[in-house]
Design a protein around this nucleic acid. Structure first.
Lengths: 112, 112
DNA sequence: TGAGGCTATGTCGTACCGCGATATAGTGGT
DNA sequence: ACCACTATATCGCGGTACGACATAGCCTCA
């Protein structure tokens, strides 16, 4: 679907944004990303869980184990204050690069 | 400046877009990217030249050596038909991911 | 003459990361 | 009993940004 690089660039902002709306567990986050992208953001467990661990190690999110009503226990994540600040800078970086691309893809005079 | 991942996601589209306007050599491409990003896209030689070699190997660009009027000889690159087609799909992938992010971040950011 | 700076291209090593493969385990349907 | 879905975890491979280093031509200033 999307290139490895594009996935890499959008993974963290998407996960942090989802968590900024409230706590969620890994598998749920995968499903939500799949839904809101019309099936285009196909993450696998080998992609998501290592990312969640990295985000936790860096202090961007925190985790709590909770039993499920039906099925295996779940690890619920919450975004931290540090995570929110990182999300804001991720947003601004993305929008900055986007504006450069739009400028490039616009009229021919975009390049000196 | 920008995260490694964002750089990785935008490098190829930016280089291919610049070359879609006409031939250019590596060092020139670095300078142009620096200019049109107001100094934010700071690529180094260790980033750019291996990329150019990869793009050439993949058949997205082709190269011709030419002497410089003053200074070392230059390797001029041109985008190929395959490269143009890759650029189009890069564009559409980027815009697709962008629209997902904008949707996530809310309509107020879509205006700016 | 020569030292430093800019242009111009190249390679190597390190660190990081997406992702397929694999493992483990609880629950529910046929 | 078997399969599918849920849920988390780890390992290894391949790809890649980037700092460090190497090479070389040209120009300016002392």
């Amino acid at each position: 679907m999307f290139s490895k690089q594009l996935i890499a660039a959008s993974l963290q902002p998407i996960v942090l944004t989802i968590l900024s709306r409230g706590e969620a567990y890994g598998y749920d986050i995968m499903q939500r990303a799949l839904d809101l992208s019309d099936g285009k953001l196909v993450w696998t467990a080998g992609t998501l869980y290592p990312l969640m661990h990295r985000l936790e190690t860096k202090g961007f999110i925190s985790a709590i184990w909770r039993p499920s009503e039906a099925g295996p226990r779940r690890k619920y994540y919450r975004i931290t204050a540090k995570g929110r600040s990182v999300l804001e800078s991720d947003k601004s970086e993305w929008l900055s690069v986007h504006s450069i691309l739009i400028k490039l893809w616009g009229p021919e005079l975009a390049i000196g």
